[in-house]
């Protein structure tokens, strides 16, 4: 009886949102943490680290609070484990017809328990990196699908991270981040590992998301309730923690190392740390000879080296 102004609904005082939670389920990172906690050799800061089961408890309270806020709030939970990412909720592969009768928490826990978190295949190399880029892509695809059905919903992604960045995923992660930025989907990051994650810093900075590394992880619920539940509508007038400075250095496409100065293909703008005769991304042939004069660094760290042909070495750091 009231749905006659769908076009106007976006401006209304409405905090309906679609939340996609990406949980890092890398068993090596979590297992390492359990081991350290058991040994008891941690310094003060790390003493507050929480185990995976405790983390799940905090997460369930967070989910409850999110669903309580608005009758029409929608949720999706993804887990990024080694080698693959899967949907914890909604569960598309459930065989049990009574599955939907369980509460959301029960469904998530059920799926986690039955899941194979260790995808080690004997013939493959040992891989300890979680597939974060896969999870991000799946999240973005899911959001696209839901947006087609209900155009007025406001999507948001929350990432819980314990593993270090995987430089091999740099390109795909950056692509996901730009795609999220284009669709105005904020990516909020909660860092539970010791080190900051440059990918996630860039993600939250570019998409106006929250970036938080809780100082006391045992009180994670308090952090989650007061900052990560702020929806897209409320961000216009409520304050939330963001980053002031972000490390935007690029990684090279050939070795995935972070470079300050390198070579850039002038056709597709891919970055290389060493000279090569053709671009591996777009296949452009560079002219054979290139002179490499001495690199001089100026006050703001920019160096321009002009060689023959299509390749020029230009880099700048912020």
């Amino acid at each position: 009886m009231e749905n006659n102004s769908i076009a106007n609904n976006i401006d209304e005082d409405d905090d309906t949102s679609l939340l996609v939670i990406i949980v890092d389920c890398n068993i090596y990172s979590w297992g390492n943490r359990e081991k350290l906690l058991k040994e008891g050799t941690l310094n003060d800061e790390k003493k507050t680290y929480i185990t995976f089961s405790k983390f799940l408890e905090h997460l369930m309270v967070f989910i409850n609070a999110y669903l309580m806020l608005n009758q029409e709030n929608q949720l999706s939970v993804l887990c990024s484990k080694i080698g693959k990412s899967e949907f914890l909720f909604p569960n598309h592969t459930a065989n049990d017809p009574l599955y939907s009768e369980k509460t959301i928490q029960e469904q998530i826990l059920h799926k986690l328990q039955n899941m194979d978190l260790n995808n080690i295949n004997e013939t493959e190399e040992r891989n300890i990196s979680s597939s974060f880029s896969a999870a991000m892509s799946m999240a973005l695809c899911y959001i696209s699908r839901i947006k087609k059905a209900t155009p007025t919903i406001r999507p948001r992604i929350v990432v819980f991270n314990v593993s270090p960045d995987v430089s091999a995923q740099y390109i795909s992660v950056m692509n996901c981040i730009f795609s999220a930025q284009k669709q105005s989907i904020p990516v909020d990051c909660c860092i539970l590992s010791q080190t900051d994650s440059t990918f996630l810093q860039q993600a939250s900075h570019l998409t106006n998301g929250v970036y938080l590394k809780p100082q006391n992880q045992q009180q994670l619920t308090q952090y989650l309730l007061s900052t990560f539940l702020i929806d897209t509508y409320s961000r216009k007038f409520l304050a939330y923690p963001t980053l002031k400075s972000v490390d935007y250095r690029a990684s090279c496409f050939c070795h995935k190392k972070i470079v300050d100065i390198g070579f850039v293909c002038s056709v597709c703008l891919s970055i290389f740390c060493k000279y090569s005769s053709s671009c591996s991304t777009c296949g452009t042939k560079f002219s054979l000879k290139i002179e490499l004069p001495k690199k001089t660094t100026t006050a703001n760290n920019t160096t321009t080296v002009i060689g023959g042909g299509n390749q020029s070495a230009t880099a700048s750091t912020k």
């Binding site: 905090d15 609070a65 309730l225 007061s226 304050a239």
Partner: peptide, 30 residues
């Protein structure tokens, strides 16, 4: 309204009274 909901969540885990001036910090000045 959404703003009121967020305020309740912020104060949910705090058991003691907080000064009203600190509540002003939650919102943008405009």
């Amino acid at each position: 309204p959404p703003r009121a909901k967020q305020y309740i969540l912020k104060m949910l885990m705090i058991d003691y009274p907080i000064p009203i001036s600190s509540a002003k910090e939650w919102t943008s000045s405009t």
